[in-house]
Nucleic acid binder design. Structure first.
Lengths: 340, 340
DNA sequence: TTGAAAGCGCTAACAA
DNA sequence: TTGTTAGCGCTTTCAA
């Protein structure tokens, strides 16, 4: 009993021989495909259980031209900046994958170096790929389309042929912005990150939509794009403050954290002097005082959904081109408006 | 030319036939094993290049009983708290793995649920496993030993049979502590995290060694173990301050960040009123003012080394039971002592 | 309901 | 230096 030592693996042939039946029958019993007698099946199961037989995924793979692996291609830098998100997302992926007997092969993609992704695709190490964080112009998507490898993206992209799973950022951001505008916080600004990331595009879109509905102009004051570095964010904050902005919205919590730190540093009180909100909250902001108004998503469900859809695709099913997941608006003290 | 579509794969047989030679010869040309004529090899390479032939890793795997995958078993929660470390470590693993034609299958281990690890081992999805962060009593190690699967651990453990790759925490922590004591910071305290983690044990050990050398007693004031939550760390800081401690040392930067935040909150100035140092610095503390004295390790090299050793082991080589990597002491403003 | 046999694409003796 | 021949452990027709 217990753990089977790696060297002494029992094969389907051994099982067949021991039971005096054919390999085919054993195979059928295990896979559940094809008819098989109740009693035979039970005998097989009993023996397998007893002798701790584990099918060889490699052999099965060769016979079916499958690896039972899925690739998870994350941008290497995202793991540094956007950690909690990808981590939770991946945990959703792993859970669903395991439930369907797949494993997850990671491949980090650095900038535009997609050699690791090419490796796992060309070497047929995976049956499909999940792409994390889409770019406006994404080499990975082009490569995967050309390769014929099934894939889905976590995030959005403009290509309608690509299976996408995303939270509804446009609606979410529009809603949060509208709420702020409803509070009469018209002197508002958005500090957004790298605009080559689709997610920042969509977040800005939602923000702009809300402003437009309130007939507010989009100016260089109300929207600060590509604020990537600490310095740029700090500068944007400074500018906003001196322009008499009432509310600073950040496209993600990394930016928000920098902004809040900067405000603290400059002795500007939240929300008394300036309100602050974020379009995405991981756990990064949890310990901040005051608590920050933000949008909340569920990265784990996102990953799980992406994985499920990919597996469906791998197994030949038709899947919806675009799956939208929800969000939550979480209003906190950072945007509290005092009554005059 | 360009990318080969996934469905229409060329096999070694096709190459052989097209070239009028045997599969064996093609195999030899590709693998580089066995003698082969210069000219034949060139012809094979040319054809392969031209027709974009990619060997099937699955078939190769079956023939050699190998997967060319290595497992990377990280504690799921570590990814949340200790992100930058594992991320960089993994990036080292991935790089070396790719260089040796292996890929990385991740399996998250939650608490003592090692089912994901069991999956990849039992289903033979990997040829070996790298374990991240060892525990004092680690189910994963027991399981892997019993399974016969080659593995190495990133970190230390007491079992001499286990291949370990670690930074020399004991020496590092002893050295940093000694430097602090040399500065006459005798009223010192260490706030350490979860003591079921071997790394915290070793860090404490180094700290204690230094204190012992200076004939300083280890008391409940000089050492605070298992400070896991924000509350516990904050409490430890409070206690230290009211006990008139001059220097707070933290076992890692997560704890350090909480400690520094707490000190800020209470209006206690660093380093004027209290010095602060950390036994590990990821990038978490980089934006803090003042800069924090800390130990610095190189997680990427750690991961790369672990991966190289594992591959050596997989390929049958003898490897050193324990590989120690270096560290750097980085003295910053947070422990600056004013001259009276 | 079960089995025989071929085959997935590659490697590795053993021969030539 | 090259080729022949068996496998690796499983799936999958096709027959029985």
């Amino acid at each position: 009993m217990g753990v089977q030592n790696i060297q002494s693996r029992i094969t389907i042939g051994d099982v067949a021989e021991a039971l005096g039946i054919s390999k085919t029958t054993v195979s059928r019993a295990i896979s559940g495909k094809g008819r098989i007698g109740e009693e035979t099946r039970n005998r097989v199961f009993a023996y397998i259980e007893e002798n701790n037989y584990k099918p060889s995924t490699i052999a099965k793979g060769l016979a079916q031209s499958k690896t039972y692996n899925i690739g998870w291609a994350v941008p290497g830098d995202a793991l540094m900046t956007d950690m909690p998100f990808f981590q939770r997302c991946m945990s959703g992926v792993g859970e669903i994958a395991a439930a369907h007997d797949y494993d997850v092969v990671v491949s980090m993609v650095y900038q535009d170096d997609i050699s690791q992704l090419k490796r796992i695709v060309n070497n047929q190490k995976v049956d499909g790929v999940i792409l994390g964080r889409t770019l406006m112009s994404d080499d990975r998507i082009d490569f995967l389309k050309e390769s014929g490898m099934p894939f889905v993206v976590v995030g959005s992209c403009t290509d309608p042929e690509v299976t996408q799973i995303d939270n509804d950022h446009i609606r979410a951001c529009k809603e949060l912005t509208s709420i702020l505008l409803m509070k009469d916080l018209n002197r508002i600004t958005l500090i957004a990150g790298d605009m080559t990331h689709v997610v920042n595009q969509t977040r800005c879109q939602g923000y702009k939509d809300a402003l437009r509905e309130y007939n507010l102009p989009i100016t260089s004051v109300s929207l600060h794009e590509n604020a990537d570095s600490v310095e740029e964010v700090a500068y944007a904050v400074e500018e906003a403050v001196s322009a008499g902005i009432e509310c600073i919205v950040c496209s993600d919590d990394r930016i928000c954290r920098i902004a809040v730190d900067k405000l603290h540093e400059d002795g500007i009180r939240i929300p008394d002097q300036v309100k602050v909100a974020s379009f995405y909250n991981s756990a990064m902001l949890d310990q901040y005082q005051p608590p920050i108004t933000s949008l909340e998503y569920d990265p784990k469900t996102l990953g799980a959904t992406a994985c499920k859809l990919l597996i469906d695709k791998i197994e030949g099913a038709e899947v919806a081109p675009k799956t939208m997941l929800g969000y939550q608006v979480s209003l906190k003290a950072s945007t509290q408006v005092e009554f005059a």
